[in-house]
């Protein structure tokens, strides 16, 4: 089962991309927590911990390293839910290369090649065979 989430923080301003990424991780963590509750409600057996892939190294380091960095102290306290959930083994943070990043489809418009590639890996399937053989290039 694959769950993808990409929070776009249009309303907030982050001073560094690292902070933005960290905020995104916090939002995704909340979402994972909700899904875990829901799965428990439905009595669905599932593997734990959930895996969270993030391509930003520094954001990942903040979650594991409790030493407060000069910049990170400005990150609001609610963002540190990530650390708590990490300790409780709800999530497991993993690095991912940009080419493997499935969430790439959410924050930007992609070219046809990478778009198709990600689509098929998202679990998007066409049950009817494509009726249109020729595509128009936009």
């Amino acid at each position: 089962m694959c769950i993808l989430e990409i929070p776009l923080y249009l309303g907030t301003i982050s001073k560094s991309s690292c902070e933005a990424e960290y905020r995104a991780i916090a939002t995704v963590t909340c979402e994972i927590q909700w899904l875990v509750y829901l799965l428990q409600d439905l009595k669905v057996p599932f593997e734990q911990p959930s895996l969270l892939y993030c391509d930003n190294d520094s954001a990942r380091y903040i979650t594991t390293n409790p030493v407060l960095h000069e910049h990170t102290k400005h990150i609001e306290i609610d963002c540190h839910i990530v650390r708590e959930k990490l300790k409780k083994c709800l999530i497991h943070l993993l690095p991912i290369s940009t080419t493997e990043q499935l969430a790439d489809i959410y924050p930007k418009a992609l070219g046809p090649q990478s778009f198709k590639n990600i689509c098929s890996r998202l679990g998007l399937i066409n049950i009817c065979s494509p009726t249109c053989g020729r595509f128009q290039r936009i």
């Binding site: 089962m1 989430e5 990409i6 929070p7 990424e21 994972i32 959930s50």
Partner: peptide, 11 residues
């Protein structure tokens, strides 16, 4: 198998 996997990115 049911295994939650999340991908996180920001722009």
């Amino acid at each position: 198998s049911v295994h939650l996997k999340a991908f996180c990115d920001n722009d």
